[in-house]
Design a protein around this nucleic acid. Sequence first.
RNA 1: GGGCCCGUAGCUCAGCCAGGAUAGAGCGCCGGCCUCCUAAGCCGGCGGUCGGGGGUUCAAAUCCCCCCGGGCCCGCCA
Length: 644
Amino acid sequence: MESYGGPLARRLEVIGSCLEGEGVVSREVFLRLIDKTPREEYGDYGFPLMRFAGGRDLGEILSKVKGCVEALEISGVSLSIDRGFLNIRFNEYVIGREVISLYEKGWRVDVSKVGEADVKSIVVEHTSANPVHPLHIGHARNASLGDTLARMLKARGHRVVRRYYINDVGRQTAVVVYGFKILNATPRDVAAILKTKVDHAIGWVYALTHTAIDVVLARKNIVEEDLNLLVSTLARLRERGGRELADKIIEAVSSLEDPEVEVSKIMLRYEKGLEPEKSLVRSIAEAALEGFKETLEKLGVEFDYWDWESDIVWSGLLAGVLNELSKSGFTKIHKGAIALDTAAVVRSIVERDNVLRESIKLPRGFEVPPMVLSRSDGTTLYWTRDIAYSIYKFQQSKADKVINVVAVEQKLPQLQIRLALAAIGRVKEAANMIHYEYEMVNLPGRAMSGRRGEYVTLDELLEEAEARALLEVKTRNPNLDEETVRNIAKKVAASAIRFSLVQPGALKPLTFDTAKVLNFEENTGPYLQYTYARASNILEKHGPIKYELANPQTYSEPLRRNILITTLAYPMVSAKAADELRPEDLAAYLLKLADIFNKWYQKDSVIHEKDTEAREAKAVLVKLVKDTLSSGLTLLGVTPLERM
RNA sequence: GGGCCCGUAGCUCAGCCAGGAUAGAGCGCCGGCCUCCUAAGCCGGCGGUCGGGGGUUCAAAUCCCCCCGGGCCCGCCA
């Protein structure tokens, strides 16, 4: 049974149990639907009782529940009925007294943990950007969401493993290897010439090679792309990097009758694990990953495992899965190739399994297209490799649940992978593989494309944000030394970016306005950090809290009361956000809390309070806010700063 | 053609899944507040036919149907 803990949640749970005992509504539904009242005068929390009363007299239910609550010796809560709602008001004196004594005993503000029986082993796979171009703002959204989900679930008490899937098999790495072969240079050589990070150099070679190939193909009308556009892209890329290097690639590619032959050859040989392609691809991918790690570290994103797609192929895992699939009875010939008959899987497995059907959420009347399992030249396809990888993730981490943070445009393959798992009898895995989808990030006025080198890199963005934050921090803290200032600026910059990517719901298409994110008056990430710094500052000036002197009577003042009640909702709010995979709910809550605190800050000084009992009680509130923000911000990847 | 997502204040969004209390924030705009815990802040004001239309209900931003606008997917690409 779900339990949220903490002084507030404990009381709400009892009320829920009493309602359940009365046969009105289950405790679970009660806890799910209970919400803060829209207006203070109604009480603290409200529950739409009318919907569940089933014609019974609300007053009668109220008195029964009141009796039940009293019998269980729960104090500090009063209930009332108003316009069909069951309203709950907490007694700030009782609650405040409880908090003070909890703090005296060393209590810590934290996300409430799941019960021991509910602890799950969860894999979060995220970011997994192709190692052929630097990370851009879209990857940053993926990484921010993925890392935050991992942090929230871990804080909730689950065992969490973070995995990065390195897509080194396939055309994209073959293209970039081809480019480096022409140059007869390593990524590090090119990076030195271009004076950039190694992953940026790789991205440049990739875009250049890819576009040069497309020019050849467009000339022969094999691909339908605007030739003029391609040529101008090529020219732009040439200007951006080393012209000599660019010309070498362009000339070599143009001289070929069909550059695809070369690319295909590299791809085929790599998949077989043949040299020199094996070392070439690996060394380039590793160089790119080195660059990624540097970038991700700035954002505070870390991984437990880096999984190579090629290992899934070379280890024979994929061959085994393909074998299982072909014996499953669910394959058929589609357009001359062996394919998984996903529609048949739906009919004979999914529709007969309620759990699976619920989990997969197949649209009604939607015929899932078949899934071709391998190319006719014998090489594998990324989605079949991903089926094998999915099994690998479950097995390696003995996972109960695998969460894939993958862009919404991959919805269909993600669905097909689950159907494939079901087809080979891995129904449990199919039901527990979650596609956490997020919408793309657009730049104002243009589309992003790795193939064309059209992107704002995360490194550039971080650099710009740091520069702006540095100016700001310096003017505010003229006496701080250079290194401290620089560190604060870095944290502010990274936090601003992360928060802006995690605050809106993941399914909202995002237009990333660099200017807005970098404007710290508008961005709410730094606002939260600032609020935390204010709270820290007060406590620092106040010194150690004398809990024995703190008088909870003083919490009757409305603003103070509001802070008390709002902060105490944290264990519950953060737990819910984790369970529902909704970081945006946590973000909204923290903003609300910061608003309340800042409002209070303005008109009710703590350290200048003359009355000792009131001063200590107020300091307890500041500590509550500080601790809550500290925990919540950390989950969102926003670094709490004592000073900014 | 089929499927999914988004459409709420000038802008960015919350609320929709699990229908109820005067639809909320932030930014922007206008006007105020630093001899007093950091003004990255606070106070006040302006601003909404919740894309449109129908239906269900005592009650609809929320559920159902139709339509409109934007995005994504339907590949022997990743």
